[in-house]
Computed example of a mutant assay.
Amino acid sequence: MNMSEPVDTCDLLCLDLPHAESIRATVPDSATIQAAAAAARGLSDATRLSIAAALAAGDELCVCDMAWVVGLPQGLVSHHLRQLKNASLVSSRRQGKLVMYQLTERGHQLTAAVLTGVDTAAAGKEPDRV
């Protein structure tokens, strides 16, 4: 180990118990954390985030329209929609021979939170032009 590298642990055990306990009391329980992590994983893929962004803009879309909007094969879009549905970020309903998808309230909130403040120039990429 290089002695000039910072170490991420304290050299002394010091615990401000009242402060630590007040924070610990606000941390969600394990089940809530697991559900939130699953939802976050739902949008951790660029294809799923693209689908969620399209649903946020279009309110409700069938798989065919969604595939055209995001420019990907229908089978791939359908696969990602299932993953979004499993993460409770998307709901679906049958309309005749079509299956219509829309973001759940949680899906809207998480998609907005993930996309808020994203600066494409800072990410080193120009935005795609259609």
Rank of each mutant, 00 (worst) to 15 (best):
N2P: 15
M3N: 10
P6N: 06
L12M: 15
L12P: 01
L12F: 12
P18F: 09
P18G: 10
P18W: 08
A20L: 14
I23N: 01
T26G: 02
A31H: 09
A31S: 12
A31G: 01
Q34S: 06
A36G: 14
A36S: 12
G42N: 15
G42F: 13
L43T: 11
L43D: 13
A53N: 09
A54Y: 04
E60W: 00
L61R: 14
D65I: 00
D65N: 10
D65P: 00
A67D: 10
A67F: 09
V69N: 03
G71Q: 04
L72A: 03
L72D: 05
P73F: 09
Q74L: 11
Q74F: 04
S78C: 00
H79I: 02
H79P: 01
H79M: 02
H80G: 01
L81A: 02
R82D: 04
S88V: 03
S88P: 00
S88L: 06
S91A: 13
S92N: 15
V99H: 02
Y101D: 03
L103N: 06
T104P: 00
R106E: 14
R106S: 15
G107R: 05
G107S: 07
H108C: 09
A113I: 04
A113S: 10
D119T: 08
A121H: 15
A123M: 11
K125N: 10
E126K: 00
P127K: 07
P127F: 03
D128G: 08
D128W: 10
